[in-house]
Design a protein around this nucleic acid. Sequence first.
DNA 1: TAACTTGGTATCGGCATGCAATACAGTTTC
DNA 2: GAAACTGTATTGCATGCCGATACCAAGTTA
Lengths: 267, 267
Amino acid sequence: MSQSIRAPSAQLPAISADDRLFVRSAARAFRVLSAFHAARGPLSLTQIAEAAGLDRSAAQRLVHTLRSQGYLRRSLDDRGYLPGLTVLDHTLDVLRLDPLVQKATPVLLELRKSVHERVDLSLFDEARMIYALRIQSKRETFYATLVGHSVPTFCTAGGRAALSVLPDERLRVLLGQMDLTAPVRGTETDPEALLHEIAAARQAGFAMVTEQYLLGEIAIGVPLALSGRPLGAIHIAGSLSEWAPEEFARQMVPYALEAAHSIMAGF
Amino acid sequence: MSQSIRAPSAQLPAISADDRLFVRSAARAFRVLSAFHAARGPLSLTQIAEAAGLDRSAAQRLVHTLRSQGYLRRSLDDRGYLPGLTVLDHTLDVLRLDPLVQKATPVLLELRKSVHERVDLSLFDEARMIYALRIQSKRETFYATLVGHSVPTFCTAGGRAALSVLPDERLRVLLGQMDLTAPVRGTETDPEALLHEIAAARQAGFAMVTEQYLLGEIAIGVPLALSGRPLGAIHIAGSLSEWAPEEFARQMVPYALEAAHSIMAGF
DNA sequence: TAACTTGGTATCGGCATGCAATACAGTTTC
DNA sequence: GAAACTGTATTGCATGCCGATACCAAGTTA
């Protein structure tokens, strides 16, 4: 099972004290929701309070409020709290208002007709790439297939592709800030080596990785960028048991490039 | 283009005054995010304030706070605000912690191998059904395919299927509360007629609709329910130009029932 | 160029408002 | 049957937020 990279907020960064424009109370509400980032099941009031760094009393009122708005709900067995369905309304807003998603949706559906492997659109968010559109093929279980799943930028095809549009000096800074923990044995974690890989991707116009994030997986990624700013990437992934790397690239890359070109033509 | 059914909060229900446990400030923050429910593009500070029912001053600080946490971002051209990617972290929490989604994911991916039409999992939320898993086939453009998209319960196959597990007296109440506006010409909106349709679905174990929500569309839905409580539905949809209704039902229903059975066996 | 917009940003005092403390009832655990 | 959990409710005091006000920059309209 692949572990997910989480937002910086996963480890509560302590509410910044001195910012006249900062609304603590609002931030606390999001902390309550963020408590579930580390959860493996329903959470009790006390657990929420602990994870959010609040006392039970404060958590209580926040939970009450969030529940009344549908951002939280009780679990089926009524033994704890779960995030509520209202969150999905905001999901829809993010996706439908995102210019990249808007343009990429029809193109990816088209792409999927030509390519019978997994096709994804991921959005660049610094150290991670967040899946926004997922077009499955076979295999793939559980939340690896869910929208909102995010993966590290430095060791995925889409991530490296997105990085390839940035100049080296920016990359050094970024890589320096990133957590370069290897998800699997064999993941490249040396910044200089990564710079080389990314340079190669910049040269080629796409990135390819084998077993850098998931064992047995091969993937190519092509960048989606606007005036030197990485926005996201197209991702095509397959199984090493079915593909020789060169053959995978030979077949997939032209389609992916074409799709990327088509998407970016919309801007 | 299909209009989307929105959360009750779309039309701001005025913050309830007298609730000792209610955290106004937190609720205001979500109002700011909800301002985008009605948006067709980036929103300015003033527009957000107006949509959220706040003055510019309050909106300003809330926006500032939300932006610092990644719940809002500036648009690409830096001319307005958009919902931020942090929202997708919560999306993932909702999906991966939802027991129905957990169990349904592998089953639906399997189902998709047998059925070459659009397959969805939607979650029951009173007057609407929210798509949580989407497994595309062909066609379908734009945000009709996005996670978080919701459709009315009363006129969709999945919705009627979900309703079919409820007793008639509950249904009368529920239907009485729902907004029964017809999305297309020909949509059944008479409560008594709907009760009959739902009763038929209860009898058959599935619901079928033709052109009740989208013109040219045929869909079947089977309910997913736990001890008399509707949780969601499986949805298979196709085109009337390719299918005779009876044939569609004959071919799809067995698969859908099998899948539903398999999912509910996990509880 | 000036007089308007409309955008985003910043500061500050007064009072509503949410924090923290406290208490209680219902379950599950041992 | 006590102990350790749940979730829920009430209240006073200090604090944190609202609302008013002001400012700068970028576009529009004269």
